[in-house]
Design a protein around this nucleic acid. Structure first.
Lengths: 188, 188
DNA sequence: GAGGTTGTTTAATGTGCGTTACAGAAGCAC
DNA sequence: GTGCTTCTGTAACGCACATTAAACAACCTC
C-alpha cells in the first residue's frame, strides 16, 4: 500500500455542506442534548454510518456545526466593534445581534448563547467587547477602565438577554426596542 | 374495602421536603434533561421506587420542584414591583435578582430563566413587569403605554441576561454593575 | 476485465434511561 | 397474635441512544 495520491472510491451521494447546515440548525434550535444522531440523519436524509464517516462522532459533528455557525458571527462581531467610537460599536452590535437573533429562515436566538457547552466561546466574545471598551477608556471616550468594564458587563447582559427573549418568541421589534433602550445608558 | 379513614402503614424513612429540595437544586443546576432520576436518587440517598411513590414520575417531580422554587420567587417579585414608583420597582427587581442569581449555597442563575420548559412561567413574570410599567404610564410616570412596553422589554432582557451571565460564572459585583448601568436608562 | 478504495445499507452492540413488579419489612387497629 | 396498609430494596422491563460490524455497491486506475 502506497501513500502516494488519494484514491477515489465510491463518490458521496449527499451534499456534505447541506448536511452540516442541517445539523447546525438542529443544534441551534434544540441544543446538543436535544438533538439525537438519529434525528439529524432523518432530517438530512442519510443513514448513521454515512454521517459518522463524514463528520466523526456526535461531538465532532457538533464542533463542526459550531465552527460553521461562528464563522459568520465572528466576522460580524469584528465589523461592529471596529466602529470609530465605542458607543457606535455597541449600538451596531446590539442592533445587528437583535436582527440576527430574529432572522427569518433560521431558529430564533443564538446557538452560542443558548448552548451551555459553549461557555468558552461566550467568554471569548465578552473579552472582545471588554477590550473594545477598554480601548475607549484609554482614548478618553470612557472615564476609566472600571467604567469600561461596567459598560462591558452591561452589554454582555443585554446581548445574552436578547438571545433569551428571542428564544421565547420575542419578535424583532421587541428586541430592537430593548437594544434602543440599552443605548440610552451611555454616559453623557 | 372501606373509604373510612386513612390507614397508617409503614412510615417513610426519609425527609420528603429535603428530597424535593435536592431535586430542585439538581434541576436548577443542570436542567430537566441534565438530571436523571437515578442521579436524584443518588443525591437524596433513596431508591427509585421511594421517589416515585412520593412524587410520581419525573415530570411530576420537576413540577413540584419548580413550585418550590417559584414559591419564594413570586413573593419577592411582588414585593419589588409594589414599590411606589416604577423606577424604584425596577431598580429593586434588578438588584434583588442579581443577588438571587448569585446567592451562595445555591446554583448560580435562575431555574425559571434557564429551563426551556418554563417559558410559560417566564411569560407570566414578564406580564407582571409590563403591567407595573403600564400602570406607571397611566400615572404619568412614563410617557405612554408604548414607552412602558419598551421599558418592559428592556427590563425583561436585562433580567434574562443577568441570569445567563450568572450561569457563566459572573460574580455578584459584575451583575450589580450591569443592573446599575441598566438603571441609567430611565427616561429623565 | 482485476484490484483497490470509499460510500451505503442493514443490522447489531452496549449503555443509560424512565419506570415498575415483586417480595419483604414496618407500622397501626383489633 | 392476625389482618391491613404503606414503605423499602432488588431486580427487572422496554426503549432510545450513540456507535459500529459486515456485506454490498460504485467509482478510479491499471
Amino acid at each position: 500500500m502506497r501513500y502516494s495520491s488519494r484514491m477515489t472510491g465510491r463518490p458521496r451521494t449527499f451534499d456534505k455542506d447541506a448536511v452540516l447546515r442541517t445539523a447546525m440548525h438542529a443544534f441551534w434550535e434544540r441544543g446538543y442534548d436535544g438533538v439525537s444522531v438519529a434525528q439529524v440523519c432523518g432530517e438530512a436524509g442519510i443513514a448513521a454510518p454515512s454521517l459518522y464517516a463524514a463528520f466523526g462522532d456526535k461531538k465532532a459533528l457538533f464542533e463542526k456545526a459550531c465552527a460553521l455557525y461562528t464563522e459568520h458571527l465572528d466576522e460580524d462581531l469584528e465589523r461592529d466593534l471596529s466602529a470609530p467610537t465605542a458607543r457606535e460599536a455597541v449600538e451596531r452590535l446590539l442592533r445587528s445581534s437583535a436582527e440576527h437573533f430574529t432572522a427569518s429562515g433560521q431558529p430564533p436566538g443564538c446557538l452560542v448563547m443558548s448552548e451551555p457547552r459553549l461557555a468558552e466561546r461566550r467568554d471569548r466574545t465578552r473579552d472582545m467587547i471588554r477590550a473594545r471598551l477598554r480601548r475607549a477608556a484609554t482614548e478618553g471616550e470612557l472615564a476609566s477602565t472600571a467604567e469600561a468594564d461596567g459598560v462591558a458587563a452591561f452589554v454582555d447582559t443585554v446581548l445574552a438577554g436578547m438571545a433569551a427573549l428571542a428564544r421565547d418568541g420575542a419578535d424583532r421589534a421587541r428586541l430592537l426596542d430593548a437594544a434602543r433602550h440599552a443605548a440610552r445608558t451611555w454616559p453623557a
